[in-house]
Design a protein around this nucleic acid. Structure first.
Lengths: 204, 204
DNA sequence: GTCTATAAGATGATAGAC
DNA sequence: GTCTATCATCTTATAGAC
């Protein structure tokens, strides 16, 4: 790296912009078509650059895949946030969780990252599988905490272990997204969501 | 490779045999890696023939895909059978259903056809998507009938509409398979299955 | 950082000999 | 029915000019 480069002040606000745009486009394609179903050519056309330019930012496809998963994990921690300690907060986080998946199930043809990569596991390079494991661990851990706090504060029913409830709830939501998509039935998820509220909330 | 294939009586190859072997191998690859994740070359190596020979039986990949889905649908109707009209029969079919998915969730790295193709929907040619819709319709219809008969005969709880119960149960099972796989946790599905029995059976 | 050009291999698919 | 040989195209990836 030259002296000039090092001395230069942050010139344009475009710094890192292309990298982000590549990741944004690639993430949408990944969620839509799966890891084996999108190519650098697809990204290049959507972003408006050439294939080779993508390789400058992400030498191999697995670098891109891993970066997308790591970013999604950071976003998960960030937007889900720490589990609340009041009934209102917990109830709100529960509702928010359901709304997030309702959006995925009812609009567009994209899966959530967990569902997508779990289906792609067999074609995923180790470099992508590793951060995905972290992602699922975080996701599962957050849900477990939510149900533990929720039972303690009387938000959820106490008819099962919180950990079991969390697993059951997470799997039901995951399955509902999948079934809603395969049926092409936007209303389906809402019916399931209604059932899930009745099943898990102490006062639905 | 499936038990049926290994048990095959005729030791010598016969006509129509290659076609079946291609479909068997391709189905396993499809369930494992998805529609975009397996190639004619993969099949050729596993079957012990050349790529071009596969094209003789299935001119295009979508022909092969459609044939696999249609066969799976026929198998579904055949093995699931008409819904019973006694509590014992219904209970048995319910258990059998859960055991089928427990096998998928706990052994091997394959998805069920419904989960797999639902995830692959965006990369599926119309020629494969069409028979898959029939498959899901049949599958959903069977489950709905099971819960309707089950409620009538006191096998299932009557705390929700049979149709809703069926949707909820099917989605939960689907999600459980997916989550169990992504966690690499063979015990997970059994925990969910236990919860599902408590939730749906009148006398768990 | 982006480009052109290209490599090296895989993919689905076809033609035609045997 | 299976083979060899071949096709056009797509894939990830690299080299080097600007």
């Amino acid at each position: 790296m030259s002296i000039e480069t090092l001395r230069r002040d942050p010139p344009a606000p475009e710094e890192g912009d292309t990298r982000q745009r590549i990741m944004d486009v690639a993430e949408q394609l990944l969620l839509q078509r799966g890891y084996a179903g999108f190519s650098y050519q697809d990204i290049a056309e959507a972003v408006g650059i050439r294939k080779a330019s993508i390789h400058h930012h992400f030498p191999a496809k697995e670098d891109l895949g891993a970066a997308i998963v790591r970013r999604a994990r950071a976003r998960l921690l960030d937007t889900r946030g720490p589990v609340g300690d009041t009934p209102a907060q917990i109830q709100h986080q529960f509702d928010r969780y359901l709304r997030f998946f309702e959006k995925i199930a009812t609009q567009g043809d994209k899966l959530c990252l967990g569902g997508r990569l779990s289906a792609d596991l067999a074609v995923l390079p180790e470099a992508v599988r590793d951060p995905f494991r972290d992602f699922t661990t975080d996701h599962g851990g957050w849900l477990a905490k939510l149900f533990e706090a929720g039972q303690k504060h009387g938000v959820f029913r106490r008819d099962a272990e919180p950990a079991d409830q969390a697993l059951m709830f997470g799997a039901a939501v995951q399955g509902a997204v999948q079934v809603a998509r395969s049926r092409g039935d936007a209303e389906f998820f809402r019916r399931i969501a209604r059932q899930l509220r009745q099943q898990f909330l102490a006062t639905p």
